[in-house]
C-alpha cells in the first residue's frame, strides 16, 4: 500500500478528482445504481465512507479496479459527486506509483483478433500507469 496519511489520502482524492467527497450523506444510491456492485468487496458508498474516515486501505479494495466508469452512480448522486472521478483518482494514486493492473502482452492472440481495439485502449488507460 502507498505510504499515505489519512489527510494526504483525502487531499489527494479531492484534488485529483475535483470532487467534494465530504458532501456525501450515505444514501446508497450509488451502490444501488452500480451494475458491478456485486463483484466489489466495498460498495461505492463504502468507498466514500472509507475516504471520509481516512482509511488508506481503501486502496487495497478491488472496487476501484472493477469500476468501469459507466457513470451510473454520478447520474443519480443527490449530492452531485462524480464518483467515477473519485474512483479514477484512487486508481491514479496507485498507477502513478507503478502498480499496473494489466499486461497487454499476456492477452491471447485470438482475443487480439476478435475484441474491438477500443477495449484494449480503454483497459490500458484505466489499468496502466
Amino acid at each position: 500500500m502507498l505510504e499515505l496519511s489519512s489527510k494526504e489520502l483525502q487531499r489527494a482524492v479531492e484534488e485529483l478528482s475535483g470532487q467534494k467527497v465530504f458532501a456525501c450523506y450515505q444514501c446508497g444510491k450509488c451502490s444501488a445504481s452500480c451494475p458491478f456492485a456485486a463483484e466489489m468487496d466495498l460498495t461505492p458508498r463504502q468507498v466514500l465512507e472509507y475516504i471520509m474516515d481516512g482509511r488508506v486501505e481503501v486502496l487495497n479494495s478491488n472496487t476501484i479496479w472493477i469500476c468501469a466508469s459507466c457513470f451510473s452512480c454520478m447520474a443519480r448522486c443527490p449530492n452531485g459527486i462524480d464518483i467515477s472521478k473519485v474512483m479514477e483518482a484512487l486508481r491514479q494514486l496507485l498507477l502513478r506509483s507503478g502498480r499496473d493492473q494489466l499486461d497487454l502482452l499476456k492477452i491471447p492472440e485470438a482475443d487480439l483478433k476478435e475484441i474491438p481495439q477500443i477495449a484494449f485502449i480503454a483497459g490500458a488507460r484505466k489499468l496502466i500507469g
Binding site: P35, F36, I66, A68, I115, I118, A119, G123, L127
Partner: peptide, 12 residues
C-alpha cells in the same frame, strides 16, 4: 441504460 461490462472483456 446499464453498462455492458466495457473493457473488462479483455481480462474479466
Amino acid at each position: 441504460t446499464q453498462c455492458c461490462g466495457s473493457y473488462h472483456t479483455t481480462t474479466h
